[in-house]
Design a protein around this nucleic acid. Structure first.
Lengths: 364, 364
DNA sequence: CTGAAAGCGCTTACAG
DNA sequence: CTGAAAGCGCTTACAG
């Protein structure tokens, strides 16, 4: 192994190029920056000098003048979650095509981390921000809000804060959940567990009114929307909904397992709608632990499709979300804002795709 | 919906703060920049003025002077692949803790895109780059190389280019594959398919020598290392290896299915080592299509653990890779380089964990 | 078309 | 401790 050289060749600057080309700095700047007009002869000499020196524009310096960094910031809950990873890929592909850089940060659904992230991004002068706002019923997102007020375009993704006057790109979660629920209802299921539902304030009764109000808090969450779609389907079918089959506990694997341990035994549940990957994993695990075979003893519809769902035994019926398109759409929206496109706040919805496989049993 | 304000409040600058505080610019700079020394009285006035104005340091301008952006670039094959998503999360967590920004780009294993990415990053003056170098047997990575030569610290992750004189952080793929193969051999398996193996030059014979030489090309890949570990295990056990059971075709789901369709029939394979998530999915799918039950008719060891592997029926025996740690380690290495730590090129290896579940049958 | 000058918002010596 | 000046590497008017 060789050791690293202790001092490296300095990067050539515009001045050095102009000097070598024997022209003024402005002329060199014009050809290298691609603006203004120059004679063919000047252009040639500058280009030659730049090539010899291996000149590369210092975007930092350019940004200082133009006030534009061609860099956007992205704040997502968890970059390692397949959902957000898919979304990020879509965002990054779109920004790269446009020649933008993308700075990413995980917020872990924590408002404090989100605020730190916003400050880091604005300090770095990003041109705009794409964010999946951290939730919580008192989500203030003050850092986000103040960034937006200072004129930094913000586009929300996957969820939206009601008070935040910014574009949003979301999935049609309500429709998707309604479709999944309709499907189970049509197959004859009545005792359909929803894992998971809206988070309830501590001590609140888990009745329909409380759940609905929780779903309609300060932010529009995918969880809340899915609950609403579930309610829609029951209402449309004229089937009474059982609030105790809506999970209100801890939104994680342990929470789902605890919820299912109870409802599988007492609630006599025949079907589960699992709305997140963690919930699906917990449902599969609980079914096994309680000796329920899928689909003979228990039906399952899972949100967030995965290649594993198709090769599972049995193949799992899922709601496939267009993650890449979601990211691309959000980036597209932000980019057009940056390019000065429109000033109306737009919320755009993307439809999910219902993939019927074999984890649902028809009861009639 | 309200319309967005057409012109926003300009961000306050250092000059405005100093003016409001009634002190010189340098003094304001000293307190806000946290360097030099100032009187308590000056500090107070500056801080008060900054707070009133909502001043926030413009990191861009700071970077112009210091030559340091506190931003690193990350180039990974595919941000939506669970493997790289996990790695990215580790990187981003570590850089955030250090107060750095992280710019990400997917290269899709394409050298051209990788070169574009390197140029974008260096133009933006990142302090360093973490990259999973795009492969190919003639991988030149010239853009990467020239960046490194210009003094931009580069750390390679997951694989390493032999000619690139840069730090690397990789998984112990050879050991992991040897362990998986040992395990199957000890369970009495002899006809063990490896999906996938090293990519062979078109038309080359798939004998042991050709495979080994392919595994030892210009870059050290996880694929090549895993093949070597597989060879080690056979050699240690004194069992002859059958080259035709090493997949050399297209490294994707279709390629694996095609390979298994052949070897499951002709090769009388009793076990499969699937070295990537796509390979695992393809193996599971092929087993089902060919009516082989796991583990009764066919054993399986899968690389890249997933929550789905545990709830699969049967639970799949896997090699779990420390993705988050891999990312953190790489970021840590880069950060210490940036902080001037050491100039010896270091390659660090992370061990995987063998998770014994129930997809392997003992034959004796 | 072309060059000298000013300026982006900071930091870094340098006198006082 | 404190302020005026120069400079980071570009772009943007502005004369010639």
């Amino acid at each position: 192994m060789k050791s690293v050289p202790s001092h490296e060749p300095a990067k050539p600057t515009l001045s050095e190029v102009s000097e070598r080309a024997g022209v003024g700095r402005s002329s060199a700047a014009r050809v290298l920056g691609g603006y203004g007009s120059v004679s063919a002869r000047t252009r040639e000499r500058v280009l030659a000098a730049a090539a010899e020196l291996g000149y590369e524009t210092n975007e930092l310096a350019r940004s200082m003048n133009t006030g534009v960094t061609r860099t956007i910031g992205v704040i997502l809950a968890d970059l390692s979650n397949p959902f957000f990873a898919g979304v990020l890929r879509g965002i990054a592909d779109a920004t790269r095509r446009a020649g933008y850089g993308t700075i990413v940060i995980s917020s872990d659904e924590d408002e404090g981390l989100e605020a730190d992230a916003v400050r880091l991004l604005t300090a770095k002068q990003v041109d705009g921000i794409i964010v999946a706002p951290a939730g919580g019923r008192d989500a203030s997102a003050s850092a986000l809000r103040s960034a937006a007020e200072r004129g930094i375009p913000v586009v929300q993704i996957d969820r939206t804060l009601r008070g935040l006057d910014a574009d949003a790109v979301v999935l049609d979660n309500r429709d998707a959940a309604r479709e999944a629920t309709d499907y189970l209802l049509a197959a004859g299921h009545r005792r359909i567990a929803l894992a998971w539902g809206p988070a309830l304030p501590a001590g609140a009764d888990a009745d329909l009114a409380a759940l609905t109000s929780a779903a309609l808090t300060s932010e529009i969450t995918s969880t809340g929307e899915r609950f609403l779609g579930y309610v829609d389907a029951f209402a449309d079918a004229g089937v009474p909904l059982r609030p105790e089959l809506v999970m209100t506990g801890a939104q994680n694997i342990a929470g789902v397992e605890e919820f299912l341990a109870r409802t599988l035994t007492d609630g006599d549940v025949t079907a589960i709608i699992a709305t997140e990957q963690d919930s699906v994993i917990a449902a599969l695990s609980a079914a096994r632990d309680h000796g329920r075979r899928i689909p003979q003893d228990l039906s399952l519809v899972a949100f967030d499709d995965s290649p594993w769902a198709e090769v599972h035994d049995p193949p799992i019926t899922t709601v496939r979300q267009p993650l890449h398109a979601l990211g691309e759409r959000a980036a597209g929206r932000l980019l057009s804002r940056l390019e000065g496109g429109g000033d109306r706040v737009i919320v755009s919805h993307l439809a999910s795709e219902f993939i019927d496989r074999r984890s649902v049993r028809r009861l009639r």
